[in-house]
Amino acid sequence: MGLFPSGNKRLPEWQLSLSPEEQKKRRQQEREARRSVTPRQKTTAGRSKRAGSEDSHASGSREASGSREASGSGFLRDAAVAFGWAFADATVWCVAPEAWTTNVALRKPSRSGAITFVALAGSLTGGAFTYTVAKNSSKRESAGRLLRVPGVSEQTIRRAETEVKKYGAKALASGLVEPVPYKAYARALGHNGTPMQEFLLWSAMARITPLTVLTTGVGVLSAVSRKAAPRLTRAAGPLALNAGWVAYYTWRLSGTGKR
């Protein structure tokens, strides 16, 4: 009975068979073993936290990369539509590319400048096409093709021809204030024998002005209104803008607009 301590606490068997010095040494070894386990646990926890942080960073990087890719593909789509629309307007279509570029600027004000120059490139390409086709065909043939475009009348064609005979390529500037489409001037200048370089120079100055004023103007208004009333801008902005375009072309393509 003397081998067991008083109370309910019982010593391990190895302590019963060892001398007091050996027991003290064994307890010291156990304490050192427990202390050595704690740093390893902390190291493992630290590694887990670092791994989690790296995974989170990698996930954030993938999301940011996906966002940039989506933004890039969105701009390419907007640019392709702007170029094609502007080319069509300068050849066989009756709605100016500003109807599209202003919508892009309303949705993404940061794209205003880039989309303006893409539309300008489309307009110049289409204008050069109309100019070349007119130069290599008779006036009756080119007039017949142009009369198929809504909003173009014989009076429109005669007016463009008269201004081109009087002012040459400078007549393109008249399109800024007169309801004569760019394609009508391109045809008249092709028949007039105006050099291509001069035609493109004046075309660029005549087309960049309305594109820049309208597209950049809408972009600035959109940026300001998004800060003041973001929800209202996103909801009512497109409706107001496109209602304005519909009203304008309803007037432009009507008898009043033609006159």
Rank of each mutant, 00 (worst) to 15 (best):
A79T: 08
R107P: 10
Y131F: 12
A160D: 00
D55K: 11
S254V: 06
L253S: 08
G66Y: 03
V224C: 11
P97V: 14
P20Q: 08
G127S: 15
D89V: 01
E163I: 00
S56A: 15
T156A: 01
S110H: 13
S73W: 14
S36Y: 04
T233R: 08
G74L: 11
W14E: 13
E54D: 15
K25C: 01
Y249F: 15
R40C: 00
T91K: 03
W85Q: 03
E22F: 05
S53N: 14
P20E: 10
V133A: 13
V37P: 06
K165T: 01
S174A: 07
L3N: 06
D78A: 13
A229G: 10
R26T: 13
W85E: 09
A96E: 05
V213H: 05
Q197R: 11
R226L: 10
R159E: 01
R111T: 12
E161M: 06
V149N: 09
T209V: 15
S17C: 07
A33C: 10
K9L: 02
R148D: 15
V149H: 06
K108W: 13
T43P: 05
S73N: 08
R34S: 07
A105L: 10
A169I: 06
R47D: 04
R140K: 13
P97Y: 10
Q23H: 03
E32N: 14
A96Q: 04
E32K: 12
S61E: 12
K258C: 01
A86V: 06
Q155C: 04
K258N: 00
K42Y: 00
G2P: 06
E98M: 14
E161L: 03
S36D: 13
F4P: 04
P5G: 11
A186N: 03
F83V: 09
G46K: 09
E22H: 04
V152R: 02
